[in-house]
Structure formats: C-alpha cells, structure tokens
Design a protein around this nucleic acid. Structure first.
Lengths: 183, 183
DNA sequence: AAAAAATATGCAAGGTTTTGCATATAAATA
DNA sequence: TATTTATATGCAAAACCTTGCATATTTTTT
C-alpha cells in the first residue's frame, strides 16, 4: 500500500504523468521510496479506479501525448487519514550486511571493494542532498510547515549518509588489517 | 533471491529447522534481513529442491518432530559465488519520511508521537546490540575472520541506530517549535 | 481443570514486485 | 544517414511476500 501513498504524496502540489513521476522518484521523494515505471503505471491505474486520482490526457507537440494524474478530494482525504495510521516498524534489508556474515580470507578484497563503492555512491548522494539543502532549506524554521517536514526527511537522509560513510571507513580500516595483518 | 541467502547464511555453522530459523531471525541476522515463518518454510522447500540444502527429520521427545536443514557442498559454493556478485544499491523504504512530506498543523502531534515511539524502539534495539557487543565482540581484531564480518554488521546497526536517535531528537525539537511557536 | 503459550509445519489465496518484452515519436549524436 | 537517447505508456509471466487459516503436541499459566 505504501507505494500508493508515496505516489499520492508526489502529487500534492502538481499533477504529473507516470513518466514524470518515475523521473521525480529519481530525485526528492525517491530518496525515501523507490519504484520502477511499471509499478508506478500499475499503481496509477488502481488509484484512479479507486477514485483517489483523476486522469486527464494532455496533448503535446513534438512528444507523445501524456496522461496527467491529480489528487481528488477523496484522495486527499485518504492521505490525511493515512498519516494518522501508525505504520509498522521499518525492516531494513541489506545484502551487504548479510554478505559480511560470510566474510573470509578469499572474499575480503571483494567486500572491501564493494564497501568502497557504496561509500563513493553515498558521497555523491550526500553532495546532492547538501546542494538541495543549501538551495531550498537554508533556514528551516522560517519555512511553511509542510516544507519543514520535507526538510526533516532530507536531514534524515543527510545524517544517515554521514553515518554510513563513517561506518564504511571503520569497516575498511578493520578489513585492511585482516587482509594484510601487521606482525 | 536474497532471503535465500540470508537463510543459508544462518545455516553456515549449524543445521536448523524452519522454526529455529524463524526464531533466530528475531535476533542476529534478522536485524539485517527479516522474514516471516511462511516465507522461511517456502524458501527452505525451494532451496532443498534446488539441492542447496539437505533435509533430515529429527525425532524429539515431548515436542513435534522437526525437519532440520543443512548446507550442501553445492549450497556452500552458491553462497561463495553470491558474495562476489555485486549487489545493486540499497533502496531505503520508510513510511515515516513519506509521512513527513505530508506534515501539517493537524497531524504534527501525531507525527511527533510516532517519531517518539520509533526513538524508544530504537533505544531498546541499541541496548540489545550493545549487550551482544560487550558479550561477544569486545576486542574485534582478535576474532576469527568471519566473526569480524559479523562484528562489522553489528557495528553498522549500532552506528545507524545512534544516528537515528539523534535525528529523532533534532526532528522533535523542530516540530515542538512548529506545534507551539514562541512569539 | 481450563486456557494460553510455545513448539513445529504447512496450504491456499491474494497482493505486490520484478523481469522481459513491445510500441511509437522526436531530438540529439556519431 | 544511421544510431542512440529521451519521451511516453503498457502487457504478461514469473517471482516473491503477506494474510488467514489449519493442525498437533506439550508446557506453563490462570
């Protein structure tokens, strides 16, 4: 159910087509909820059948026509209700940690490389987060309330990213000793 | 596919039944990969059909018989191969952050309560992590290599938890100002 | 003594997600 | 000019996960 809510959240301010949603999920909200275009298109159909979204075909020049979706009153109400439902505690799922349970002399180099790659990816992500923060969330207390919520999500991403990079460093340090032990 | 690998990882040292696996997933490995008993039983069947696990019925006194599963040579090889496969980057999915995008005057109190609850849950989790750490991972460099991997996963959980609690505090602080603005 | 919890496994149905394919136009690049 | 990239949507099958039910025994609690 939660992808539906992420989609509807993305439509709070602006109507969007499935294609536009899929792209916007690569930025902003997609930092906290990811989905492929197939998932999005399927969900959009279900949500408009349910009456939570309205659709409207938009003619375009030089591009294929698109179908733009927007929240209905029912949809907005459903979102308002959803926020009050206590969501079950988050399960984290990460291959990397399961792989670490399989650490051995043979694969330590590979795991170090994988951690290093994750670190690089996270650094890029953090760079993007900080750019967004500087551009739009300089003084969070002055923002309208909903934007403050978005800011807190962004801050969560930033804090989490910083922590992950620190962990990568600690892990690489320990694994380096494992790989070539100093006598 | 990754649940299979988590299950097989749990079976590296000891054979286990589905029931025992489900319980051990509530501790240790389950911190990084969660699964219900139905999922586990279904996966165990598939994995033994594939030849990655062997099964053996164990008679017990005072309890129903159990079916104990263990890694086959093929299974161990499949795991060794899997560690070398670069896993795709982790997608985070968290309702709470999506909900924050819907922050408003009406639901700020509820969201604060939800964050507070998450903070409490995480504190308990951290307490457990630290207990395990003190009991089994006092001096990580002296551990056998595979245990060092497990330690790093645990450390990841600890660092992540500490960071999350800090974020909760920051979030609650900002939201408190939103709820009752000081003039 | 009765009820609940722990041990132990599983089916069936439904829902969600992934993977692979398919289509079509226009702009940009090689 | 031919290929690739971007725009735009979707079907179908398979894989995976969740929910609800079902069973059976023993130990613990009320």
């Amino acid at each position: 159910m939660a992808l539906s809510h992420a989609i509807m959240t993305a439509l709070i301010d602006d109507d969007m087509s499935g294609y536009e949603l899929a792209k916007s999920f690569d930025r902003s909200l997609g930092f906290f909820w990811q989905a492929s275009h197939q998932q999005i298109y399927q969900d959009l159909r279900k949500l408009s059948e349910k009456g939570w979204l309205s659709k409207r075909e938009v003619s375009q020049r030089g591009k294929p026509n698109k179908i733009s979706y927007g929240l209905t009153m029912t949809g907005r109400q459903a979102m308002a209700d959803w926020v009050y439902q206590t969501s079950k505690v988050q399960e984290s799922k990460d291959d990397l940690f399961v792989k670490l349970y399989n650490l051995g002399e043979d694969n330590v180099a590979h795991l170090m490389a994988e951690i290093d790659q994750r670190r690089k990816n996270m650094m890029q992500r953090l760079y993007l987060y900080e750019k967004i923060r500087r551009a739009h969330y300089g003084d969070p207390e002055l923002l309208p309330i909903r934007r403050q919520g978005v800011y807190l999500a962004l801050l969560g991403g930033i804090r989490n990213g910083e922590q992950f990079m620190q962990w990568c460093d600690e892990a690489l340090e320990l694994l380096a000793k494992v790989e070539s032990p100093a006598q």
